[in-house]
């Protein structure tokens, strides 16, 4: 996918290429099984994330994880969970196409997000993720660094959210 970028020196907004994405639902007691299949220790606390190379896992509910992996690994990961299902009930759903991922980077990233996100982003630790709202859209917000965030937004809400981010970038560039 082309990656349109809107930016000035303080912040840039880029549409990131898709990755394999899964919604995993499993009893917390069975987390070790899921960690073994996915090859990454899944974080146990809501908001926390874990990452190793292409693989990432974010706990976004008491029994809910958002998993990221390379697209080529999508079917292997599904097969892995499929094999374990009878023994360890769970639900894993491919969502690689449900959301579009937007990268927001730069020293003004928090200012830009704060145009429409009510969270106190200074309290969010690097590597963490949470489901929240951006204007009227539900999103998952991932913090990759002090000045780097990713926003995952349902595909149909993307034009609205991306349009607001573009307005925000223009506003920040004017500097008022």
């Amino acid at each position: 996918m082309n990656a349109p970028v809107t930016s000035f020196d303080a912040v840039s907004v880029a549409v990131l290429p898709p990755v394999a994405r899964f919604n995993l639902r499993i009893a917390p007691a069975d987390l070790a099984v899921a960690s073994r299949i996915f090859g990454l220790t899944l974080p146990a606390k809501i908001g926390e994330g874990a990452r190793n190379g292409d693989r990432a896992a974010y706990c976004i509910g008491p029994d809910e994880w958002l998993l990221h992996a390379a697209e080529v690994d999508q079917s292997a990961i599904m097969s892995g969970f499929d094999t374990a299902r009878a023994e360890t009930p769970h639900s894993i759903t491919v969502l690689s196409d449900r959301e579009i991922i937007i990268g927001i980077t730069g020293p003004a990233a928090i200012d830009l997000l704060s145009t429409c996100c009510p969270l106190d982003l200074s309290r969010m630790a690097v590597g963490h993720a949470k489901r929240t709202v951006f204007d009227y859209a539900q999103v998952v917000l991932i913090r990759d660094g002090d000045d780097a965030f990713r926003l995952e937004v349902w595909r149909s809400f993307f034009p609205h959210v991306h349009g607001l981010l573009e307005i925000g970038v223009r506003e920040l560039a004017i500097g008022l």
């Binding site: 029994d63 009930p89 690689s96 595909r155």
Partner: peptide
Amino acid sequence: LRVWLTSTTEEW
């Protein structure tokens, strides 16, 4: 009940 729900409206 051991059931999980996931919205896939926009996956498809």
